[in-house]
């Protein structure tokens, strides 16, 4: 069992949990994720490691409540425990000195971006961060990421904070002004697609972190397969980060809708109880 040692409500449906998992904490690197299961009847779901503390033996996860499992997770509190918590999984981010890097985070994708921003900064990069959300209340880790960035921008769909519009508008302005050596984008699939299409025009290396539906996370089921440059890769062992210019985003969107109908049913059940 993996006890919850801290909890923060970041916005109405975005929560942060700190979990005691010493083995995972010891090895976790930016870009990696865990797979958890709440209880014996639960589904296995992947969440990115937003932070880790090897001394304390804790791992932080930040999640958006979208369905049965994430909603149930959001109800748990300090003192509760998770049945399973396996990781760190996937390959770590390619953290090295690139020069000027732009880190783009959208929605709950901001959470996994945070450890990468910190690590890129530590390597001596000039880090420009752009965070995007529907509205200002949904922005995560704003001050934390701001503090680790050399330049910092915000974009909201409704203009409640920063630029009114998409992160890609801000990215375009930055590309117009700066020599950009690398772009790291994590967020909704559509955001990563738009960012990648933009940077492709300028031949800027772009990394994205993909979030297909997973089961085991060890390369056994192939459920997480994504199409990269026409080749099939397993996001849990070959990723989750890939060259943004080579990803078939439409296929990923489609595969992530595979169980939409069924999940509705599970939520209804949970609501009825």
């Amino acid at each position: 069992m993996y006890p919850i040692v801290d909890k923060k409500v970041l916005s109405e449906n975005v929560k942060l949990l700190k979990i005691k998992a010493p083995l995972v904490a010891k090895k976790a690197l930016p870009g990696q994720f865990i797979i958890l299961r709440i209880d014996e009847k639960g589904e296995r779901i992947p969440l990115t490691i937003a932070d880790s503390d090897p001394k304390e033996g804790t791992v932080t996860i930040i999640f958006l409540e979208v369905g049965k499992t994430t909603k149930q997770l959001g109800i748990l509190d300090v003192g509760d425990s998770l049945e399973n918590f396996a990781g760190p999984l996937g390959l770590p981010s390619e953290v090295k000195k690139y020069g000027t890097v732009v880190c783009v985070g959208g929605g709950v994708g901001i959470a996994p971006l945070y450890p990468i921003v910190k690590a890129l900064k530590k390597e001596g990069n000039f880090v420009i961060s752009i965070l995007g959300a529907k509205t200002k209340d949904l922005l995560l880790l704003e001050s934390e990421i701001h503090a680790s960035s050399d330049e910092f921008y915000i974009a909201t769909d409704d203009g409640s904070k920063g630029h009114k519009g998409f992160v890609s508008d801000v990215l375009q302005q930055i590309i117009d002004k700066h020599q950009v050596d690398m772009v790291m984008a994590i967020g909704p699939i559509i955001m990563m697609k738009v960012v990648s299409n933009l940077t492709k025009k300028y031949h800027i290396k772009t990394l994205v972190s993909l979030n297909p539906i997973m089961v085991d996370g060890t390369g056994m089921c192939g459920g997480c397969r994504v199409s990269i440059d026409g080749k099939t890769k397993f996001a849990c062992v070959d990723g989750p980060e890939f060259d943004g210019h080579k990803v078939d985003y439409d296929n990923l969107m489609l595969r992530n809708r595979r169980f939409v109908h069924a999940e509705g049913e599970a939520c209804k059940m949970a609501g009825d109880q």
Binding site: R44, R258, H261, A262, E263, A266, M269
Partner: peptide, 8 residues
């Protein structure tokens, strides 16, 4: 849906 994992 007694168990959370679906299959189609």
């Amino acid at each position: 849906p007694e168990y959370d994992t679906p299959v189609k």
